[in-house]
């Protein structure tokens, strides 16, 4: 709607220019007309046009070049490690820089577990927020609340980490974790030792960080559901919740799955906040309260200390794995979100 306000503006401007040009058209039959002279003088601008479109195309191709370059650098950098350990690299638990023995399994485990934990916590909340904002919220609250959720996305990872170290971790250690140990201790997932930092803290901070992206995409997908679906459900006598469940969520489910997968992509690659609270110990433990390590954190912590080429190469191979996994996850998510919101352009997240 807002565009239409702009149209008269631009049209008004071009009208001013149009007048003299329009008045010269009747003369264009004669060879010396100003119009023809103008057209002839345009040969140089055709050249400029070609240059311009070439430059623009070059910049556009830069995006491909960047992805290719990243892939090339990662592959060539991890050659040493790939040659030495092969595929087994991803299934071994050894991480011994002194003897040059490397395996990425504890990091893959840590990344997966903390990300899945984050999804379990974040997804119901994110969908709840999206439903509230699109279907229930009074109009005057909608814009401020949407702004606040977007603000959550604007907070830098390192600030989340700082907050997590000094506020979240003590809170978890002193009140939440003892409660979980008491109630869910039988499952073996929440047992002593309780350090505060650890896999669970990593999952919680990740959940807070991926909430905005999941909820804003879910909101977008829900808004794309045609209004007629809602009206039809209401006309049949559905309550608001039944209308949301049958008319909205069912229609939007593919897009919501896309949003969740996109959140997973974010969680997998998140570095700083996780590094600051996950505990940084490359061991696999059943208890979620125990210390862990993630792929991104091991790179962040050890990359600048990597003393020999094999060490560096092993770290780069972890980066390569992370790159490929996040690309696949993101591509999948984008396809799903597009499938739903096709027509209405998806906002850059």
């Amino acid at each position: 709607m807002e565009i239409r306000i702009q149209v008269p503006n631009v049209a008004g401007e071009s009208e001013r220019i149009q007048k003299p040009a329009g008045s010269s058209f009747p003369d264009s039959g004669s060879s010396q007309s100003p119009a023809r002279a103008f057209l002839q003088s345009r040969r140089s601008s055709a050249f400029a046009d070609r240059i311009f479109s070439a430059v623009i195309l070059l910049c556009a191709l830069c995006i491909f070049a960047i992805v290719a370059l990243i892939l090339y650098e990662l592959v060539s950098g991890s050659r040493l490690s790939i040659d030495k350990f092969g595929v087994a690299f991803f299934f071994r638990s050894a991480w011994d820089p002194v003897n040059g023995d490397y395996g990425a399994f504890p990091f893959i485990y840590g990344t997966l577990v903390s990300s899945i934990l984050a999804l379990i916590i974040a997804v119901p909340l994110a969908v709840g927020v999206a439903v509230f904002l699109t279907e229930m919220c009074p109009g005057f609250l909608r814009a401020p609340l949407a702004f606040v959720t977007e603000l959550l996305a604007a907070i830098p990872s390192v600030v989340y980490g700082l907050w997590a170290i000094f506020v979240l971790v003590p809170l978890l250690r002193d009140s939440v974790n003892p409660f979980l140990i008491r109630v869910l201790g039988w499952s073996g997932l929440f047992v002593e030792p309780n350090y505060g930092v650890g896999m669970f803290a990593g999952g919680v901070i990740l959940a807070i960080m991926i909430l905005p992206i999941v909820s804003s995409l879910t909101r977008e997908v829900i808004s794309a559901v045609p209004q007629a679906q809602r009206e039809a459900a209401l006309a049949l006598g559905a309550t608001r919740w039944e209308m949301i469940r049958m008319g909205v969520l069912r229609n939007a489910r593919i897009g919501i799955v896309g949003a969740i997968i996109l959140g997973l992509g974010r969680a997998l690659g998140e570095t700083m906040a996780v590094t600051m609270v996950i505990g940084n110990r490359p061991e696999i433990s059943r208890s979620l309260l125990d210390l862990g390590y993630s792929m991104a954190s091991v790179i962040a912590n050890e990359f600048s200390e990597a003393s020999d080429n094999l060490y560096l190469s092993a770290l780069i191979e972890i980066g390569l794995a992370l790159f490929i996994v996040t690309i696949v996850v993101n591509a999948l998510a984008r396809v799903l979100v597009w499938a739903v919101t096709r027509g209405a352009p998806v906002r850059g997240a």
């Binding site: 995006i63 960047i66 992805v67 370059l69 990243i70 650098e73 990662l74 950098g77 996109l262 992509g265 974010r266 997998l268 690659g269 998140e270 570095t271 991104a296 790179i299 962040a300 990359f303 770290l315 780069i316 980066g319 992370l322 790159f323 996040t326 690309i327 996850v329 993101n330 591509a331 998510a333 984008r334 850059g348 997240a349």
Partner: peptide, 14 residues
């Protein structure tokens, strides 16, 4: 879109 989702740490490594 996909490049947007590449983890920043990977960008640093490359």
């Amino acid at each position: 879109d996909v490049l947007n989702g590449v983890p920043s740490i990977v960008m640093g490594v490359s």
